[in-house]
């Protein structure tokens, strides 16, 4: 049996965020007593979910005039990305700098994110990333111990691999749609710099910075990552920089950098910062990360 239009309209107001307190209270009372209305409500929430899925799949409309060279504007296209920054866990700022090069080459550099894990309440989700502009991985903010000082600020990120793991990483997705469209004659690269430390002996880890360009939007990167491990249709390019600290410098900070030239058709770049070559038979160590700097560099190459 169908429900009254009044009840269906109230469900719609609730789902579109238009219902006030009294209306939510009324809907709650109706749902409690009416099984048919609960079915109607759940059908409506499923439709709402499907519509949202479809709406998020739509290509983002570029602003008029975006075919010219990159400008100094910064556009937030993805509301989720903005919300991620507003959480305030990370200090991301936007700084453009134009660096003249020889031969008419112009290089424009934009800060994507800097991170030194100063928020004492920081605790990341230990999973592969499913959204842009957030760090994911088994990491918490700590005051460094064992005679180690932070590279930046007073705290560092402590990466804690699970017992038995041979490798562990923290990851971050850059949504390239958040940045100005690339103009003809320009190439773009992502440059990452991070400091690692292994203050507790017992393991001889290698440190790794891996940058991977995906054709997928940030929320679909995880699936592409799992399904397509090699470079292919969705994993477009990957750069891996491994660093083995000298045996007598294990407790020092080690700065590791990597740069990825972003291929055409890329939508997301995943930054993985991790340790590997762990011995699962030895006690688990904690590792420190600090002073992460990520920049997007736009280089103009004159055709002559």
């Amino acid at each position: 049996m169908d429900n009254s239009p009044e009840k269906e309209e109230l469900i719609d107001r609730y789902l579109t965020g238009m219902a006030d307190e009294a209306e939510v209270e009324q809907l709650d009372a109706w749902l409690k007593e009416d099984e048919q209305l609960r079915k109607t409500f759940l059908t409506a929430t499923r439709m709402d979910s499907h519509i949202r899925e479809r709406s998020l799949e739509q290509p983002v409309k570029k602003e008029a005039g975006s075919s010219g060279p990159p400008t100094l504007r910064f556009r937030w296209i993805n509301p989720g990305a903005a919300a991620g920054l507003l959480i305030g866990l990370f200090s991301a700022s936007v700084v453009w700098a134009t660096i003249p090069q020889a031969g008419g080459i112009t290089r424009t550099s934009e800060e994507v994110v800097t991170e030194s894990f100063e928020d004492p309440d920081l605790k990341l989700k230990p999973m592969l990333p499913n959204r842009a502009n957030q760090w994911f991985g088994p990491l918490v903010s700590v005051a460094p111990e064992g005679g180690v000082s932070a590279v930046q600020g007073s705290r560092v990120g402590q990466l804690s691999p699970n017992p038995g793991n041979r490798a562990e990483s923290v990851r971050y997705v850059v949504d390239l749609d958040d940045y100005p469209e690339l103009a003809p004659g320009h190439v773009q690269s992502l440059q990452v710099r991070v400091s690692f430390s292994d203050p507790f002996t017992g393991q001889k880890p290698k440190f790794r910075v891996a940058l991977t360009a995906f054709s997928e939007a940030p929320r679909d990167v995880r699936e592409a990552w799992i399904m397509e491990r090699e470079v292919g249709d969705r994993v477009l390019q990957q750069v891996v920089r491994n660093y083995l600290p000298p045996a007598d410098e294990m407790s020092d900070w080690h700065e590791v950098s990597a740069s990825l030239e972003i291929p055409e058709g890329s939508r997301s770049v995943v930054i993985s910062l991790g340790v590997f070559h762990l011995n699962p038979d030895k006690p688990v160590s904690n590792f420190y990360l600090d002073a992460i700097e990520v920049r997007l560099v736009d280089t103009f190459l004159p055709s002559s």
């Binding site: 219902a19 307190e21 939510v24 209270e25 809907l27 709650d28 749902l31 409690k32 099984e35 609960r38 079915k39 409500f41 759940l42």
Partner: peptide, 15 residues
């Protein structure tokens, strides 16, 4: 005040 009661949520989840 804009959330349903726990009882309603349980009924919806069951369904």
């Amino acid at each position: 005040r804009l959330v349903f009661s726990e009882e309603t949520l349980e009924l919806l989840a069951d369904e």
